[in-house]
Design a protein around this nucleic acid. Sequence first.
RNA 1: GGUUCGGUAGCUCAGCUGGUUAGAGCGCACGACUCAUAAUCGUGAGGUCGGGAGUUCAAGUCUCCCCCGAACCA
Length: 578
Amino acid sequence: MQPKEKRRILITSALPYINGIKHLGNLAGSQLPADVYARFQRLRGHEVLYICATDEHGTPAELAAQDMGISTQAYCDRYHEIQKELGEGFALSFDWFGRSSSDENKALTQHFAHALEANGLIEERTSKQVYSVDDGRFLPDRYVEGTCPHCGYEKARGDQCDNCGRLLDPVDLKNPYSAVSGGTNIEIRDTKHLFLLQSKMQGEIRNWVEASTDWPQLARSIALKWLDEGLRDRAITRDLSWGVPVTRPDGSVRPGFEDKVFYVWFDAPIEYIAATQEWASAADGDWESWWRTDQGAADVEYVQFMGKDNVAFHTVSFPVTIFGSGEDWKTVDKLKAFNWVTWYGGKFSTSNKRGIFMDAALELLPADYWRWYLMANAPEGSDAGFTLEGFQAAINSDLANVLGNFVNRITKYTVSKFDGALPAAGTPGDDEAWMAAELKKSLAEISAHYEAMEFRKAAAETRALWAAGNEYLTRAEPWVKYKSDVDAAAIGVRTGLNLVALFAIVAQPLIPNTAKTILDTLGVPNENRNWPSPDDDNLLDALPHGLPITAPPVLFQKIEDAMVEEWTEQFGGEPIEA
RNA sequence: GGUUCGGUAGCUCAGCUGGUUAGAGCGCACGACUCAUAAUCGUGAGGUCGGGAGUUCAAGUCUCCCCCGAACCA
């Protein structure tokens, strides 16, 4: 096979909002698959840059901080650290995990606004906003509550009614009051805001979407739906203090916008680029070679991972900003959208104590257990239900019995019958040829699935390869041959031990920690842990003869029924009432 | 309401541009083996592919209608 050209792959996963701890579904829908993909491509020898960040602006963060009685800055500092640590806990291999509140993002957001305005795509408009006399400020979105004009629910938020689910304009609320002070002295006043004239970009965006034939069906249909309905001009500023200040090109505050900032949906995606700048500053990297097509980024493959709720922003809104700037920015090439993971068919909910969240998960079991199940059951075709029973079955069968036991049986046998050294004797026969053929086929299939970002299939084929290893041992039966011909047994043991290493190498994208444990135990050097080529005829005899072998500790503990019962009690396993 | 996606063995799901006896994993039954985390390997049972009509030599796979579920609608 010809050596593959080294590709440069830029990967971003949707930015988790700063508010609170994310649940397993949030993890499975963008950060985790992005990580698996990044790890795979690194193992293939490609140059990968995996970028993520917390999305920190917007009213929910401010209100949450207020509830805790701390500043929004302090709140974001705290939750950024928590999310960063949880990401590390789940072995998410970000090259950089940034913050949308960074100086880089402020500067870049302002830069884009100036460029857009220079191109006639931003204009000031006067609109009516809810003003609280008691608080002396305008009340955007959730800062105002009142009675829903549609259903009469009395605690509807300014942007959306939690009862009937309809989106609202704050000025339409009946009996409005301030969510800050409770004050009812409310007026509707005129105020200026910046509007992004998305309607002017309609044609250009449509051409781009229609040319992007590689996108999955889900993404294309969502993007075209928005375009069919017509892009609307949207306000990109809000009456808040926490966010990116609205400036003029000379850096001074824009007159009339002293108490306003850019709205979160405008600055958040720009953070993909700004976070790369943050990475460049910290790691002495060249961010422009990843993002500026006039600075070396033309050959970059840009892959975005996101939940389906984010597709429109990535395929339409953010491209308006990018294309509207008139500058040479890299745009997305491939994108992968995920459906939701549900908890027994219902929603994860902190307040209702339904579902396992990222922090709780790591207290129960190591990250690899969750990573395996979430990817083997990724919500790719439709929503996927998380159940503890399904989790238990997958862990016990796939990880403990098929992989864990395989490693255990062959390493222990080597210790007891071959003095803990990889045997050099014996010559490969039919069984080894069969295994080599299985391996070759499996490696090609797993690679193809990862390349296509089909994570369920990649996991299933990885498992099938492990199972083939067990079948091989049944065929080779070294424990039988040992009685009459030690050399004939030796080839089975040697092949089995090489399979252990290969299984771990191939498992690295999905279960990196366990894979490392296995490879460390075998003493496989880092440079030999790259993705194997199906055309390498020496794969089953790659480990050095005489290599000392010890049995690693039990790799996966089984999940007992009692644990499932306990967790069901703790996390609410009952199906949701219709 | 509109749009989109789903409804395939007990469970979770594969089935590309229509074409031999509809597949996998789990679960279940039986058998084999004993190196191993009571693990593993093999065999088998089980499906009128949501319902109805149509196109075709041929439909799970295309068209229409209906039922059910989910999501999205800035």
